[in-house]
């Protein structure tokens, strides 16, 4: 059974690259353009991993993760945050919200793939 990954990012190009990479590796991908959109699209369906940007309109990544962790069905779902190296503060916020894994922007698709496979292989 292929596993499902959700990518939450306001940049369409990033969503696209991540989708292509993960599809290529055999994952199902759900795309969402911000936290709010993501929560709506999830709607209780099974997701193995969530990748989320931090800076997004409507609902930022940190709030999104905090909300996600409140939902029983996603309590154990691993989250990868996308951070910029300069934003150490943000990284800590993300960890506090429940996102223990991160990938530093800008990243290469391969890097993203290896992070994903570490968590849901």
């Amino acid at each position: 059974m292929s596993k499902t990954v959700m990518i939450v990012d306001d940049s369409a190009s990033i969503r696209q690259v991540v989708s292509i990479t993960l599809h290529g590796a055999g994952y199902e991908v759900i795309e969402a353009c911000d936290g709010k959109d993501a929560l709506t699209k999830l709607g209780g369906q099974r997701v193995h991993l969530v990748i989320s940007d931090v800076n997004m309109p409507n609902m930022d990544g940190i709030t999104f993760v905090r909300e996600l962790k409140k939902l029983g069905s996603y309590k154990f779902t691993p989250v990868i945050m996308l951070t910029t190296e300069a934003a150490d503060e943000k990284k800590r916020d993300g960890q506090a919200a429940g996102a223990k894994a991160w990938v530093v922007k800008p990243f290469a698709p391969q890097q993203m793939l290896s992070a994903v496979s570490q968590l849901i292989m």
């Binding site: 154990f76 691993p78 223990k100 496979s117 968590l119």
Partner: peptide, 17 residues
């Protein structure tokens, strides 16, 4: 660790790479 979304088995599997 489980509550953080990490599955120990995943790491062991990934170790195989």
């Amino acid at each position: 660790i489980l509550a953080e979304g990490m599955d120990p088995m995943c790491f062991i599997n990934y170790l195989g790479t």
